[in-house]
């Protein structure tokens, strides 16, 4: 597509959104069997898959840290994810995206709980349409929660850009290609920023406004991430609503010592001591 003459006509963008409107997002949790945590996320026309493995042993050994876990983030674009076939494998861009994405999620993880181990995050972009790094960060933080890795909270991320001299939330491809600026932001639910990049130029005031808009966008995304995680087990819980009264309290069963199970073994027979 060539550069359109105008990006915003009567306050409506090319794809029919308002300037402060996000693209629709769909999140599915636990889609990969062999991963410890996983998430499939669609963000407009972006399609990304995130997988989390770990905590697990660190290979190569020299990377391991004696007091904390190492977090490794690998962002990769599939060769078919863009219109013109992309040469597969890491390139300068994807190495940079991996680095900033890792720095966006790492402060939220309690790495000190798992010394000498590694937490590996893989984000695979299946279809790209601007804002893949924000989509990747959103998917990764849901996948981390799914892997039951202790975290301070979920990270949410979205971009703000400038087209036709006006700030707009969450750029799509044409706005990104021909726009004047692109500012991806990632933040915690409290509004602490863990990622802030800028491609293009904004004035001081515009940047301030951009971060405010991104904060609003991240709040909406956080809600979607939350709902997706709750949705995964909610159905099961609702089907058995009437049984809730019969439930023995989890905590009590947790406190049960394993000793009792072992002591019973000898009575049940069939086992002889060596």
């Amino acid at each position: 597509m060539d550069k359109p003459e105008k990006f915003i006509i009567d306050g409506i963008r090319l794809d029919g959104r308002k300037p402060d409107e996000l693209r629709p997002m769909k999140i599915e949790v636990g889609v990969l069997n062999r991963a410890d945590g996983s998430c499939y996320l669609e963000f407009g026309k972006n399609k990304v898959l995130a997988a989390v493995y770990g905590p697990r042993e660190v290979h190569p050994r020299h990377m391991q840290k004696p007091t904390t876990a190492v977090v490794r983030f690998k962002y990769n674009m599939a060769s078919f994810s863009v219109e013109e076939r992309k040469r597969p494998g890491p390139d300068r861009r994807s190495i940079e995206v991996s680095k900033v994405s890792r720095e966006a999620v790492e402060p939220m993880i309690f790495t000190e709980y798992f010394p000498k181990s590694a937490i590996d995050i893989f984000v695979e972009v299946l279809q790209a349409d601007a804002g893949t790094r924000t989509a990747g960060i959103n998917a990764a933080s849901v996948a981390l929660a799914d892997a039951s890795i202790p975290m301070r909270g979920l990270v949410s991320s979205c971009a703000v850009g400038k087209v036709d001299g006006e700030l707009v939330l969450d750029l799509m491809k044409d706005e990104d290609n021909y726009g004047e600026a692109d500012v991806p932001v990632a933040m915690t639910p409290d509004g602490e920023i863990t990622l802030l990049q800028m491609d293009g130029n904004l004035t001081k005031e515009e940047l301030k406004k951009a971060v405010e808009m991104a904060t609003e966008g991240c709040k909406q995304i956080y809600k979607l991430q939350r709902d997706a995680l709750i949705e995964r087990y909610k159905k099961d819980l609702e089907e058995h609503k009437e049984e809730v009264e019969l439930v023995e309290i989890i905590a009590e069963s947790e406190e049960t010592s394993i000793e009792s199970t072992i002591d019973n073994t000898d009575e049940s027979g069939g086992l002889n001591d060596e």
Binding site: G54, P55, Y233, I249, A251
Partner: peptide
């Protein structure tokens, strides 16, 4: 789980 102490019981996770 609210039983004396407030806890979150995970649904998956590695053995530590």
């Amino acid at each position: 789980s609210e039983h004396n102490k407030i806890r979150v019981v995970p649904l998956s996770g590695k053995y530590i």
